[in-house]
Write a protein that binds this DNA or RNA. Structure first.
Lengths: 206, 206
DNA sequence: TTAAGAATTGACTAAGGTGGTCAAATGTAA
DNA sequence: TTACATTTGACCACCTTAGTCAATTCTTAA
């Protein structure tokens, strides 16, 4: 990556990053088209290859950018003293949403990294997996859970619910360019979290 | 579609269908390659276009095949007299698994249809959506649910849990050609269902 | 054994898309 | 005016694509 790319104005830089995220998450590496990216981002072909040596260089930059952006925003802003898992995930969801507002396709791209089979990508992605596991375990008070339910399974269900809610909302807004009401989404997610709380916590913690 | 295709031996027919399901669900319509399909299915280019007029014809055949196969297997085999939602979904999962054994990528392809924006595809897919909604509502006794939880949300969580479990297992086995132990999977799914039962049912129904 | 027809092959094509280059043009700042 | 950084888009060699078709092999029945 040419360091010139880091110096251009933010709007343009984000636009390029977002278009690239979009194209790669839609078509994976091989079938993603740099032609589409430059058309979508409204820059010339030459400029993209002035910023990045080649397609792979661009992809690697995006990979690092994706992981670092998510890691920094979440790791540094979450209150790790919170011991209630539902308050914890509420926070995580909130920060994810903030990231999504600025980089709408960053988590799609992250999922691509996640599912990828390429060795060097997997390595980078270990950090994201660690973060995810830390969110659901670090400093969490598990004694609040009903004893009859298997903890690991309950936690998976919580994680899956949030992931699927995210995916389905994201699908719902696909194609429509009406801007997304993130506050309303957040409120609905929180109400799902309340359902999960009732589902999994002992009576005295409700 | 050339009717000759319906007459060839089942093994070959299923092989072609499965390779096509795989390619299309991986790359969507535009970027899917008929060259890859014939290579993977071990047939000649000419033969594929002897069976199907063109790529679109193949895709449409697959769409109908996908919808019909799922509909027939599930609609006709589920015991619609069952009123317990968890017994209902256990059955649905079982039949889905039976379909997956024979057509490993059929639900990936179905998801592609689901997420597609093309009008004529959406039409066909209405049937699948209706089935899904019927599974989770027809003849179901909702009085067993805790009154504090919002029914619609609880049902979404159940559905999402099963879907995500499916996706994650399917990812786990991707690349590995060791044959899948469907009985073990089914057992684990059932244990997730038991967790959900504890989570959402009133005490007297456990 | 033969003949007719069905099934199957794979080399071939024209069209279009690919990642990447580069000389020229433009912008910027001193 | 100069020097340098940015930006453009026409251009290229290469590759893949969907689809064709004459030739071959297989099947069946007389």
């Amino acid at each position: 990556m040419n360091e010139a790319f880091e110096k251009i104005d933010m709007e343009k830089r984000d636009r390029i990053i977002n278009c690239a995220f979009k194209e790669f998450s839609k078509y994976k590496f091989d079938k993603a088209s740099t032609n589409n990216i430059v058309k979508d981002a409204n820059i010339s072909k030459g400029l993209l290859f002035y910023y990045f040596n080649n397609k792979e260089d661009l992809f690697k930059y995006l990979s690092e950018f994706c992981v670092n952006t998510i890691l920094e925003e979440i790791k540094n802003n979450i209150d790790w003293n919170i011991t209630d898992i539902f308050e914890r995930v509420k926070q995580a969801v909130f920060f994810k949403m903030k990231i999504t507002e600025r980089y709408p396709y960053i988590f799609h791209f992250g999922k691509l990294l996640f599912d990828s089979e390429s060795k060097d990508v997997i390595f980078k992605n270990k950090d994201l997996m660690e973060l995810s596991s830390k969110i659901y375990s670090y400093n969490i008070d598990f004694t609040k859970f009903k004893e009859e339910v298997e903890l690991k399974k309950a936690i998976n269900i919580i994680r899956w619910t949030l992931e699927k809610y995210g995916e389905e909302s994201s699908n719902r807004f696909k194609g429509i360019d009406k801007e997304i009401d993130y506050d309303a989404l957040l409120e609905e997610i929180n109400s799902y979290i309340e359902v999960l709380r009732i589902a999994f916590y002992k009576g005295e913690y409700l």
